[in-house]
Nucleic acid binder design. Structure first.
Length: 767
DNA sequence: ATAGATGGCATTTTT
DNA sequence: TGCCATCTAT
């Protein structure tokens, strides 16, 4: 049996054992949130609640799968294997097998398949990003909007703004005023485009991501049988990462859990009206999705909306050492709004976090790689992660790792499902399931030579008007297309499992792929193998197709054995022994786009908090002094992120890159000894980097260390007694403040502050 | 009408 | 840099 009181702390236990009524669990980072949810699942099931009446809504499907998997292991461990001969009623060997789990989007789709939204008939098709852009392009050509007008926003921009306005539930006009005032002049054309886009979707039974949510809400509000169905089926709702829900999602959760729609609600609110079982789990300090409409008020107002909410706080941290927590807590301390969060741990102090100051983003990559190699001696690659604000921040590191042959997987950035060949195969799959899937049809048809958008549209329109024969005739004029259609026809006739179906599609498609991608088709073929692996988990090809459109399958692909590179957003909810955070400089982190509105800035701070709290024992913050910036025409100075500047030096250890490329601990002037020249016995280099950018270094004609030689400078151009001004390749002109025998000087560079630099790398300047 | 090519652009985060 | 959108020759 499961011993809840042994395995959980008091607060966790209370959360797990509070089965009925509204419940808000404010779970600090690393406070055992997943554990609590898993044990609560077990508790519910042990209380006799059928697992099939539990719905677990998570932020990603991956999170749901992980939790259910952990629940299964807990059950296995606690109950053992079922004894077949026992006369006792057997426990289900997989007690959680029927718990429903997934994202709001996939839940919405599962309901909308049964209860179609108003105006939609036939199979619903989920649009992915490419489909959406193609739709906008189509509409704008049709309406001749923005033609030849350079100032008119691109499809991507239009889509982003529209989606934002929908998620925040504000008129497009207001969203423009707020986020893109320079586009405000186009607001009426954009409204027009938006209307055309909506028509387009309806005509072709297409739903974009936002439609899934709004359509579900509409169905729940307008069709009592749909609401009754959902409520009858799921009586216990758990929502993970509640701080990142947007208003529709919160309303959907409330509706399904039993909250009456506003129209039916009594004027005084919901005094005793709410009888549902809804648990929200989240952390206001980790709310990082406001940009897509997440509303932190959902979690703050939860107790007001659901009267009688029990609030439980989880503040004991089981993940990180105390030194790491001190730094994370400090990040929040400077928040504009006072978050009452103070994480503590009983794990012990551990090591202080390191702040590493490389001279450039290039050497940042080299140092990070060197550090990773060092860490891999005592950690598995899967226990190490490099995090960054934006996808492209990891590019230099990716290059370095590739050179060194260090395998990594990257999350965030280019997505697997967006790879062209995967989308091709997916189109075939979708067309087998739904012959009228317009976007899939276009994608497949355009693989044939001589077929473009116009032809696609014509054939599709003909088919839509019911004249299937004529459409087939038109298609037959293109032999390749005809072959594809015959293939689809054949595949449809047979009842194939998802795996069989995909196998046949890939077989059919492979010759095409070899023509299309002569340079790298073997690699792509390998990627398609993965698709088949993924398909093995599905019985219903329809659900497979939807999931492939909704999420990145790479996320659940095999082992955690590779080093992780990830945006902070994608790292949410995960943890590693060692975490390196890159590019902690102004303009990058916080993102320069977040410097306008204070609330955006605060979200960056929470992002920093999320990043720091991913680490268990090792945390390193990288603060390069310069960045390569192509638009700025080369290497530009960079100032440390305010999130780093704010930190008290007592919280971390500081490593600085000398001009010889080695890292050494920064000397902090002892109190009362600020310029004392005698105690500069140099601490041993913490990690000496091999120059991974040899050719780059040569191009810049920088001397670099041999592997065995301690760098001995050549005759210094800056003499031992020199004073006054000098010049440095990156920092520019600076004033020599102090000599550090035998071979270094301390220089004050305007904009960079004091630097300790090998004298041989400086040239004299006239005062 | 299509396909291939050129040229211009901007570069946050995700379901 | 790589992605789009538009242009141009077929």
């Amino acid at each position: 049996m499961i011993d809840y009181e042994r395995d959980l702390n008091e607060a966790q236990f209370e959360a797990a054992a509070s089965t009925d009524g509204p419940l808000l669990v404010v779970a600090g980072a690393g406070s055992g949130k997943t554990r609590t949810i898993v044990y609560r699942l077990a508790y519910l099931v042990e209380s006799g609640i059928p697992a099939s009446s539990i719905l677990l809504l998570t932020f990603t499907r991956k999170a749901a799968v992980e939790m259910l998997e952990r629940a299964r292991r807990l059950a296995e461990h606690s109950y053992g294997l079922p004894k077949l001969s026992s006369s006792e009623p057997l426990l289900d060997p997989r007690p959680f097998a029927t718990v429903q789990g997934g994202t709001f989007h996939s839940y919405a789709y599962s309901i909308l398949r049964i209860f179609r939204p108003q105006g939609y008939s036939g199979n619903l098709t989920i649009m992915d990003n490419h489909d959406i852009l193609a739709a906008f392009q189509h509409c704008r050509e049709e309406l001749k909007i923005g033609k030849g007008d350079r100032s008119f926003p691109k499809n991507q921009t239009v889509n982003a703004l529209l989606s934002k306005s929908r998620n925040k539930e504000m008129p497009l006009e207001d969203a423009l005023r707020r986020d893109a005032p320079h586009l405000f002049m186009h607001h009426s054309a954009m409204e027009e485009l938006t209307a055309a886009y909506a028509r387009y979707k309806r005509e072709k039974s297409l739903l974009d991501y936002d439609d899934l949510l709004f359509s579900l809400e509409e169905v729940l509000l307008t069709r009592p049988e749909a609401l009754a169905y959902c409520r009858g089926r799921h009586k216990y709702i758990m929502v993970d990462e509640y701080q990142d829900t947007n208003p529709v999602q919160a309303r959907i959760a409330g509706l399904v859990a039993g909250l009456d729609p506003p129209a039916q609600r009594k004027p005084e609110g919901t005094p005793d009206g709410f009888r549902g079982n809804l648990m929200a789990v989240g952390d206001d300090a980790q709310s990082i999705y406001a940009f897509r409409g997440a509303d932190i008020r959902n979690i703050l107002d939860f107790p007001k909306i659901f009267k009688g909410t029990k609030i439980i706080r989880l503040e004991e941290n089981y993940r990180s050492t105390q030194h790491l927590l001190n730094l994370s807590n400090a990040v929040l301390e400077n928040a504009a709004e006072g978050y009452a969060k103070h994480l503590f741990t009983r794990r012990g102090d551990g090591l202080k976090p390191n702040i590493v100051r490389p001279l450039s983003d290039r050497s940042q990559a080299a140092h990070a790689a060197a550090r990773i190699i060092e860490l891999m001696r005592s950690h598995r690659p899967g226990d190490i992660a490099v995090l960054f604000r934006s996808g492209f921040h990891s590019f230099p590191l990716e290059v370095t790792l590739n050179k060194l042959g260090i395998a990594f997987k990257k999350y965030g950035g280019v997505r697997y499902t967006e790879a062209a060949h995967v989308r091709d195969v997916l189109s075939f799959l979708r067309l087998v399931l739904n012959p009228m899937d317009f976007t899939a049809f276009c994608r497949m048809a355009e693989l044939s030579r001589g077929v473009g958008v116009k032809t696609c549209l014509k054939i599709y329109q003909t088919a839509l008007s019911g004249d299937g024969e004529k459409a087939a005739e038109m298609a037959a004029r293109h032999p390749e297309l005809a072959g594809d259609l015959a293939f689809l026809e054949n595949a449809r006739r047979r009842e194939l499992t998802p795996v069989q179906l995909l196998t046949e599609i890939i077989e059919h498609y492979t010759p095409r792929m070899e023509l299309l991608y002569p340079d790298d088709y073997p690699r792509r073929a390998q990627g398609l193998e993965q698709l088949i692996q993924i398909a093995a988990a599905y019985k219903d090809p329809d659900l497979l197709a939807v999931d492939l459109s909704l999420e990145d399958p790479e996320n659940r692909e095999e082992g955690a054995e590779a080093l992780t590179l990830s945006t902070i957003h994608s790292a949410k909810g995960l943890e590693w022994n060692a975490v390196l955070i890159l590019d902690l400089v102004e303009e990058r982190f916080p993102s320069r786009h977040a410097m306008v509105r204070p609330e955006d800035y605060e979200e960056e701070r929470r992002l920093m908090y999320v990043a720091c709290t991913r680490a268990r024992t090792v945390l390193e913050l990288y603060v390069p002094s310069s960045l390569y910036d192509r638009s700025g025409g080369g290497t530009m100075p960079a100032s440390p992120s305010p999130f780093v500047r704010e930190l008290s030096p007592s919280l971390y250890r500081e490593l600085q890159e000398g001009w010889d490329g080695a890292l050494s601990e920064k000397r902090r002037p002892a109190p009362g000894n600020r310029l004392g020249g005698n105690d500069f016995s140099r601490p041993p280099p913490v990690s000496k980097i091999v120059d991974f950018h040899t050719h780059a270094a040569r191009n810049r004609s920088l001397p670099h260390e041999d592997d065995n030689a301690a760098a001995e400078p050549e005759a210094p151009p800056v003499g031992p007694d020199a004073c006054g001004f000098c010049r440095h390749r990156i920092f520019g002109r600076g004033k020599i403040v102090q000599h550090l025998p035998p071979d270094k000087v301390r220089v004050n560079f305007p904009g960079f502050g004091l630097k300790v630099i090998m004298a041989s790398y400086l040239s004299m300047e006239d005062g």
